[in-house]
């Protein structure tokens, strides 16, 4: 469904000798329809940048990317993106923020409202629809951002550390809700996180990015059927392995 081939991306950087910093080099990834992929890596390695490139917000310097759409795209958008910061529009109510991506799709006002409220209900904020963003807690804002991405009913959902700002209990319940949603809608998910436990609990595949420029350092497939136990011993072992690899790479100058 997504084929990324030899993707490279550099930002201009006047301080470096060749005038640019290469963030991603020869990055390859293919994602099957409905797959749940987690991307982990150290801060600043290029995880957010990767999502930006996939979303078409930053043109790559080289490489190709194919994103095959499936099904009827009327009233929908090809992807939904949850930014690392909630990035709500302060002049819109919660409901209107969630409806942001639905505008320009030829939907009636009532239809947009219905879909926005549906998405809000999914993240447990149906009763906050009429509020202003400044009246929400940080975690609630992040959930509104998730609802905004879900509202456009995308095939591909990209999430950049969406639960990073939440307390452990809310995070766990949203993780389970995300899994539930994913099972019901068969969306493809690219999920960036710092939290290796979270990655291993959620994903079919965990991709470790490291180095500068960043490349895929390891890829682990997790076959454990869902629902998974959070204290599953195989999962714990894998978490430890990935964590060790990551710290080796950081210590050993692999970055």
């Amino acid at each position: 469904m997504i084929e990324i081939r030899d993707l490279s991306l550099a930002f201009p950087n006047p301080a470096s000798p060749d005038g640019r910093t290469v963030v991603l080099r020869d990055f390859n990834l293919s994602v099957a329809p409905g797959e749940f992929i987690a991307i982990v890596g150290a801060s600043g390695v290029g995880k957010s940048t990767l999502l930006r490139v996939v979303a078409g917000l930053v043109p790559p310097n080289s490489g190709t990317m194919v994103h095959a759409q499936s099904g009827d795209l009327r009233g929908r958008r090809p992807y939904g993106l949850v930014f690392q910061d909630a990035r709500l529009l302060p002049w819109r109510t919660v409901r209107a923020n969630v409806a942001f991506g639905l505008e320009g799709l030829g939907l009636s006002r009532a239809e947009r409202r219905r879909r926005a409220e549906e998405a809000l209900a999914l993240v447990g904020l149906a009763d906050k629809a009429g509020r202003w963003p400044h009246q929400l807690s940080g975690g609630q804002r992040q959930r509104v951002a998730i609802a905004r991405a879900l509202a456009v009913d995308p095939d591909l959902l990209m999430m950049d550390e969406p639960f990073g700002a939440l307390d452990a209990i809310t995070r766990q319940s949203l993780q389970d809700e995300l899994l539930d949603l994913w099972r019901r809608t068969s969306k493809t998910i690219l999920f960036v996180t710092h939290d290796i436990d979270e990655a291993v609990y959620l994903a079919d595949r965990v991709i470790l990015l490291a180095g500068s420029p960043a490349t895929v350092r390891s890829e682990d497939r997790i076959a454990t059927p869902r629902p998974r136990a959070r204290d599953d011993s195989a999962a714990r072992a894998l978490v430890t392995r990935i964590r060790d690899r990551l710290s080796d790479l950081m210590d050993g100058g692999g970055i």
């Binding site: 979303a55 993106l81 910061d85 529009l89 002049w91 942001f100 320009g104 799709l105 905004r148 456009v152």
Partner: peptide
């Protein structure tokens, strides 16, 4: 700039859409 990127990410890519949905309210 982040809000303009948000508009891009949610399909509002034309200058007019950005003007109406982001620039004018943010500048109001």
């Amino acid at each position: 700039r982040d809000l303009l990127e948000l508009a891009d990410a949610f399909g509002h890519r034309s200058a007019l859409a950005k003007l109406v949905k982001i620039v004018l309210p943010a500048a109001s």
